[in-house]
Design a protein around this nucleic acid. Structure first.
Lengths: 119, 119
DNA sequence: TCCAGTACCAACCATTTTGTAAGTGTAAGA
DNA sequence: TCTTACACTTACAAAATGGTTGGTACTGGA
């Protein structure tokens, strides 16, 4: 069995958080456990299906913990594990950068939209 | 025209670096300008087509600068802009985390591969 | 009795992303 | 003369990811 080897540490992080929604899910869980519906409202544009799927993958990978309160209607909460928290800590500087450069990035996104309209 | 609004700074970062290969491209350019072939060899598993495409997008977004030496055969180098460098700085802690947790992540990846074999 | 709420599933479909292959032009070297 | 190298393009195909819809079960409230 060949050992998985990453060229650099970044590949390892991307292997865990590389999904489209995963960084945002982990980010929102950094402030405390959340129910599925809460996450659905917090994560912009995510569909229910993809939220559930990525949560499942994050749980399988040991990044989040799923807590089923065994009630009806169902009450489920997701929280970060220690492993997940260590990942969430990495996201803080990204958030700060994004907040500082919000205007620049917004311009870039709008410029892309304009270019797309022309093609 | 509606203004692009991000729910959090992380969305802004993902809007720029969210492509599959973009974080790795920016990471490798952090150590200095590179030619296309060099990047191809450094970025694990990337196809030529996707490398070129993501480089183009990063150049369009002002993250990298493309330098054409106007020779034959062609000699082109890519380097980070100041904007790109500020992004690359964000990746350093991710690399460190990934290096520290290399073994854990490798196990996760291998466990996924085993689960996939069973389904 | 009916409806809302919750969390999730499965089937099917759509979209996006990626990969492969063949091609371009031209200087330099074999 | 032919081949190699470079960087990139285009067309087509494949794979991956994502979205929609209808469904499940069951308590509690209207």
């Amino acid at each position: 069995m060949t050992e998985t080897n990453f060229r650099c540490g970044l590949e390892a992080v991307l292997a865990i958080l590389g999904g489209k929604w995963k960084p945002l899910i982990v980010y929102h869980l950094a402030s405390g456990s959340k129910r599925t519906g809460q996450l659905r409202r917090l994560v912009t544009n995510v569909s229910e299906k993809m939220l559930i799927q990525h949560l499942k993958e994050l749980a399988d990978d040991g990044v989040v913990r799923r807590i089923d309160f065994q009630t009806v209607p169902p009450h489920v909460e997701y929280e970060l594990t220690d492993f997940g928290r260590s990942l969430a800590e990495l996201l803080a500087p990204l958030c700060e950068w994004g907040t500082r450069h919000n205007a620049e990035v917004a311009m870039i996104v709008e410029k892309r939209a304009r270019v797309e309209e022309l093609t």
